[in-house]
Amino acid sequence: MNAQTLPLQVIATAAALRLVEKLRTRHGPLLFHQSGGCCDGSSPMCYPQDDFIVGDHDVSLGEIGGAPFYISGPQFAYWKHTQLIIDVVPGRGGMFSLENGEGVRFLVRSRLFSDEELAVLQAAGRA
Rank of each mutant, 00 (worst) to 15 (best):
M1I: 03
M1L: 03
N2R: 03
Q4R: 06
T5P: 00
T5V: 07
P7L: 00
L8A: 11
L8R: 13
Q9I: 01
Q9S: 01
V10M: 07
I11R: 05
I11H: 02
I11E: 03
A12V: 01
A14F: 01
A14N: 09
A15W: 01
A15G: 07
A16K: 01
L17H: 04
R18S: 13
L19N: 03
V20L: 08
K22G: 01
L23D: 00
R24C: 11
R26C: 03
H27K: 11
G28W: 12
P29H: 13
L31K: 09
L31A: 08
L31R: 13
F32D: 04
F32H: 02
H33D: 10
S35V: 14
S35C: 10
G37C: 14
C38W: 11
C39T: 06
C39S: 12
C39G: 12
D40Q: 15
G41W: 13
G41L: 09
G41Q: 09
S42P: 00
S43Q: 13
S43M: 14
M45I: 07
M45K: 14
M45Y: 03
C46T: 05
C46W: 05
Y47T: 06
Q49N: 04
Q49D: 10
Q49W: 02
D50P: 01
D50T: 08
F52V: 01
V54P: 07
G55T: 09
G55H: 13
G55W: 08
H57M: 04
D58V: 13
D58G: 04
D58Y: 12
V59T: 05
V59E: 06
V59H: 07
V59D: 10
S60G: 04
S60L: 15
G62E: 05
G65K: 08
G66E: 12
A67R: 10
A67K: 11
F69D: 07
Y70V: 10
Y70C: 05
Y70E: 05
S72F: 11
G73I: 08
F76M: 10
A77I: 07
Y78T: 11
W79G: 06
W79I: 08
W79Y: 14
K80I: 09
H81V: 12
T82W: 03
L84C: 06
L84D: 07
I85K: 02
D87T: 15
D87K: 04
V88Q: 04
V88S: 10
V89D: 07
P90Y: 12
P90G: 13
P90F: 08
P90A: 15
R92N: 15
G94M: 15
M95K: 10
M95S: 14
L98S: 15
E99C: 05
N100F: 12
N100C: 14
G101K: 07
G103L: 13
G103M: 13
F106H: 06
V108L: 06
V108F: 06
R109C: 08
R109N: 14
L112C: 04
F113D: 01
F113K: 02
S114L: 03
S114T: 15
E117N: 00
L118K: 02
A119R: 09
V120A: 05
V120C: 02
L121D: 05
Q122Y: 00
Q122K: 06
A123W: 00
A124G: 03
A124V: 03
A124E: 03
G125D: 12
G125N: 00
R126G: 00
R126H: 00
R126T: 02
R126N: 00
R126L: 10
